[in-house]
Design a protein around this nucleic acid. Structure first.
Length: 458
DNA sequence: TGGGGTTAT
DNA sequence: ATAACCC
């Protein structure tokens, strides 16, 4: 029974995304595709048959933590463990544990609907992401260590760990099958380490590319894993009920495809490549049509430390004073975070959302370089940075909002980006983001930094 | 929808 | 700076 689909159920720690982050790397164009009198519209890819053992044959392990925020909350307070638990941000239950799911609570349900469905639901506030971030860094650290220690000699090869998609039988003489089985043992080891060392459960999917690994990871849901053998790829991809369930096809693209009469995976597979390229551009068209066949050659790329830090809050704001107060609040938290990271931001950005008639995704932003004299103070105990930074941010604010006219905002966000490393340490290496300043191994548990603590590191 | 994050144009 | 994508 493969009722995969259902889709993006679980939250992942930021760090686990390193394993599945898509990196386009799309080749420029394919000469043949441009030929005007090319009669056939058959997809030109499909080339995937290659001698087994060829270097382009990959085994991808995709790990996906179960309801991550809810798990962190249950670890913080074990009394919540056997109760239906929801994590609340504003009036939304952004995620919930599996007890709550059994009782009908869904992700991103309003608190009202959730309480109606499940009156016993326990809610915790999850607007402060600090503890989730801390756990996420621990996950990253652990995965990096495990990857270095991986030894294939221990991994017994002829058995599978976990489920096989479709219950397909393994052919022990098929090299691809065997390699995927080894992958299933690596996945099991990762999940075991995750549980033993951090107390976190999760799912894993093992397949020949990132798309398939991610899709198959969700087939058996909490705390289980599944391997996909190549012969079942088409079954997996066709188990999706709609193209929007394909990672890489988001809201907008799905709408555009629907306007072309494309709604099922097979619709997309059989649609004219040329027309698709005219509608969406060659890059997107070729990529998503390949995805519809379960083909994805995007590489696994290490994500490294984050490239930006931001703090946001949604709330009603209709005066400059309210805005300034909120900006100070957001900025104070950000300075703490940036301080612990060890790198320095060279750009600051202010983001707003206007009330208006709820256009989806209506955010506007203004950004500017951070003056170098302020950047310098950021590293070594940032005194006096608050006032000038607020000043800059208020200028950005007035650049977007005419404060002489009435206005109504529903969100403010401050973002630090363009991060440059202050320490000269080993640039792309693992040590780089496992430096003491980033380490989350503090045994004191909750550690709240004040700004004056910042010059204590190094 | 929340509080984040990334890449492409 | 915006728009698309991801969780």
């Amino acid at each position: 029974p493969q009722e995969a689909g259902g889709g993006d159920d679980d939250e992942e720690a930021d760090s686990t995304r390193a394993m599945e982050r898509a990196e386009a790397g799309a080749p420029g164009g394919w000469p043949g595709a441009l030929e005007p009198d090319e009669p056939d519209d058959l997809p030109w890819f499909h080339d995937e048959l290659e001698p087994a053992g060829s270097s382009s044959c990959r085994v991808i392990v995709h790990v996906d933590l179960d309801c991550f925020y809810a798990q962190v909350e249950m670890i913080s307070n074990p009394e919540l463990k056997d109760k239906p638990l929801g994590v609340q941000q504003k009036y939304l239950v952004v995620t919930c544990n599996y007890e709550a799911r059994k009782l009908g609570v869904k992700k991103l349900m309003s608190v009202r609907d959730a309480k109606e469905k499940c009156p016993q639901l326990v809610l915790v506030n999850g607007e402060d992401l600090t503890r989730y971030r801390e756990m996420s860094y621990k996950v990253t650290e652990m995965v990096e260590k495990r990857l270095e220690q991986l030894q294939s000699d221990e991994l017994s090869a002829l058995t599978v760990s976990g489920h096989v998609y479709n219950n397909q039988s393994v052919n022990p003489r098929d090299t691809l099958h065997i390699r995927l089985l080894v992958g299933s043992h690596i996945a099991a080891e990762m999940r075991e380490a995750m549980y033993q060392q951090l107390g976190l459960t999760g799912c894993a999917g093992v397949a020949s590319n990132k798309l398939l690994a991610k899709l198959v990871s969700g087939v058996f849901k909490p705390n289980q894993q599944t391997v996909l053998l190549p012969e079942s790829s088409q079954d997996l991809i066709h188990s999706l009920n709609h193209i929007k369930e394909i990672p890489g096809i988001g809201y907008k693209t799905a709408k555009r495809l629907e306007a072309l009469g494309i709604s099922s995976v097979r619709d997309l597979q059989t649609f004219s490549s040329k027309i698709l390229e005219k509608e969406l551009g060659i890059s997107v068209a070729q990529r998503i049509q390949k995805l519809s066949f379960g083909e994805d050659d995007s590489p696994v790329t290490p994500s490294g430390p984050p490239q930006s830090f931001s703090e946001e809050d949604s709330f009603r704001c209709s005066s400059e004073v309210e805005a300034k107060t909120k900006i100070e609040e957001l900025l104070a938290s950000l300075l703490n975070r940036v301080c612990q990271d060890g790198r320095k931001p060279h750009t600051v950005r202010l983001v707003i959302r206007r009330y208006s008639s709820e256009k989806l995704c209506n955010r506007e932003s203004r950004q500017c370089p951070i003056p170098s004299h302020i950047v310098q103070k950021l590293g070594a105990g940032n005194y006096d940075v608050m006032a000038p930074m607020v000043d800059i941010l208020m200028k950005l604010f007035r650049n977007m909002v005419n404060v002489k006219m009435p206005f109504h905002l529903t969100l403010l966000s401050v973002c630090f980006c363009n991060l440059k490393s202050r320490n000269t340490a080993k640039k792309g290496t693992i040590d780089y983001y496992l430096t003491p300043s980033l380490s989350t191994t503090s045994h004191t548990g909750k550690r709240s930094f004040k700004m004056k603590d910042c010059h204590m590191e190094d």
